[in-house]
């Protein structure tokens, strides 16, 4: 039982990371129908920005939630900028061209960021300064069950960000414009919505969440390297598809489901197949319910 609960807790903290990344995927897909392959790399950028902010501002000397929030904001700002620049330089000029070109560009951007990241940050893994929070004495254990305080911090922060996002999407003018653009691009622009700005804003918002996920993952698994984004990025995409791509609640649900599935697979069955599971799930979901758990089936239009 303790072991079971332990897996659930691990799965929740892992799932919250996936959820933050999956939200960006699903939002971008919503407005552009584009799989932004570079999203995982934006998450990597977030982790590195967080690390360098903590190092350069010497935030470790003043541990506490305030310092963490400074690092988080820096990472989110850097990621949002990266998202904005990528959309502007690589995706916008191609908006009218065939979708396959856009997809190829996205893959190109993703690889470019990975390998330039290796040039700039070095290819060896670096340690994320987890000393930014002093949580030595707060380990809570019950029998075999150990709850890492970092996991709880990450989970809570992720949930707060998700609530904020939910508020932005469903309660603000920007969110309404985003939903309009995602519903129908041309119609939205006829209604006077500046679609280009809204798409930029969507990219920035999604990228900011990925950047935050980068910092939070640094807290839980403090080893970061320039290629760290690929796998979580793809898995988050699977989570987004699992929940129904384009659906914000679905992305969160899919992410937690994937987190649970992975954690149980590792805990109870074959740990070495961890990375294969997500793709197995993807193939199954495409086979049996391509619209995802919460998605609605949209007929393709001519």
């Amino acid at each position: 039982m303790d072991q079971f609960l332990q897996h659930v807790i691990n799965a929740l903290s892992l799932g919250s990371i996936y959820a933050l990344i999956a939200l960006g995927y699903t939002m971008v897909f919503g407005v552009l129908q584009l799989i932004n392959f570079a999203h995982g790399e934006i998450y990597m950028l977030g982790a590195f920005t967080g690390m360098y902010t903590i190092r350069w501002l010497r935030l470790e000397e003043h541990p506490g939630i305030g310092s963490l929030i400074i690092a988080l904001i820096a990472a989110m700002a850097a990621s949002a900028t990266a998202g904005f620049v990528i959309e502007r330089l690589a995706y916008r000029p191609l908006r009218k061209s065939p979708r396959i070109n856009l997809l190829i560009t996205a893959v190109g951007v993703s690889l470019f960021l990975q390998y330039t990241g290796q040039l700039i940050f070095g290819s060896d893994p670096q340690f994320f300064p987890t000393g930014i929070l002093e949580l030595e004495g707060y380990n809570w254990s019950y029998g075999d069950l150990v709850i890492e305080p970092m996991q709880i911090v990450a989970l809570v922060l992720a949930l707060i960000l998700m609530v904020v996002l939910q508020y932005i999407i469903f309660r603000t003018r920007l969110g309404r414009a985003m939903r309009a653009v995602s519903f129908n691009h041309d119609l939205a622009s006829l209604m006077g919505i500046p679609t280009n700005q809204i798409i930029s804003a969507t990219f920035m918002l999604g990228s900011a969440l990925a950047g935050a996920a980068g910092v939070l993952v640094g807290l839980i698994y403090p080893k970061i390297d320039p290629l760290m984004g690929t796998m979580p990025g793809l898995k988050a995409f699977v989570a987004a598809v699992l929940g129904g791509i384009g659906n914000v609640t679905g992305a969160v649900l899919g992410a937690f489901t994937l987190g649970l599935a992975e954690e149980f697979l590792v805990g109870y069955w074959v740990p070495t197949y961890r990375d294969a599971l997500a793709f197995g799930i993807l193939i199954l979901i495409l086979l049996f319910k391509p619209s995802g758990l919460l998605g609605v089936h949209r007929a393709e239009k001519v």
């Binding site: 799989i35 997809l103 793809l234 793709f279 193939i283």
Partner: peptide, 12 residues
């Protein structure tokens, strides 16, 4: 399904 899914599935 649409081409984008194929990309991810083949990658996976």
């Amino acid at each position: 399904l649409r081409g984008d899914y194929l990309a991810i599935v083949t990658l996976g």
